[in-house]
Design a binder for these strands. Structure first.
Lengths: 112, 112
DNA sequence: TAATTAATTAACGCATCCGTTAAACACATG
DNA sequence: CATGTGTTTAACGGATGCGTTAATTAATTA
């Protein structure tokens, strides 16, 4: 599978607040579709589609227990997103380090 | 501005390979629209729209030099994305730590 | 001023996203 | 088998995304 298309799916999956809310909920542990839908102010079919998108991106997987489909987080996909962002970490890190240095210098001159 | 909408804009901006390519190019330094368009196999107006999306997400800013609009990366927006992913870092970090522990144990029993 | 270069906006077509309601499917149980 | 509960799929409508070409704006230069 193309790395580019995988990132497409990951980022567009993350681009909807309902889907990020679902991930946030799943960070606390498994949950059924209805449990995930409860706080979301939209119909159950809508939530079902969001879950399908998250599954398509590999961000979650769904199990099966009786008529329930417990969902759980898939850490590997989140790690892929983090790996992409880490690619740029040094860019803003450098800027923050510089800011910190300025603050330290100002502090030295003032009350250090 | 709502944090949620900002994340919407950030992630959907990152969800297109051309836009990620533009960011990657800008990580190496400023570039004009034409320079950014050169490797992208699409028309200049299309690239212009992608740049507008990136600007709307706060990921880049455009300056002005004669008839050129040099674009540069906006580290703060990338930091916002990184902050979101960091929120989940412990989840996959835990799994990787566990994997590493297993590997270490296997190593101990085998050749350590 | 006229012509050139850089970039954006306009207008269009096609595809996908996102919500809804209604229907169907899967499993559990009386 | 019939009924209830959990979840998905189907069908529809409206909005947005993404590419194109043609036209327009902005600044440079002959």
């Amino acid at each position: 599978m193309s790395d580019d298309r995988q990132l497409d799916r990951l980022f567009s999956a993350l681009a909807h607040p309902a889907r990020r809310a679902i991930l946030a909920r799943l960070a606390a542990g498994e949950a059924t579709v209805s449990e995930l839908a409860a706080p979301l102010d939209m119909s159950l079919p809508a939530v079902s589609r969001h879950i399908r998108v998250l599954r398509g991106a590999g961000l979650i997987t769904s199990g099966r227990s009786a008529q329930f489909r417990p969902c759980r987080l898939e850490p590997h996909a989140l790690a892929t997103v983090a790996a992409w962002t880490d690619q740029y970490r040094h860019i803003w890190q450098a800027r923050f380090d510089a800011m910190e240095a300025v603050i330290r210098i100002l502090g030295d001159g003032d009350d250090g």
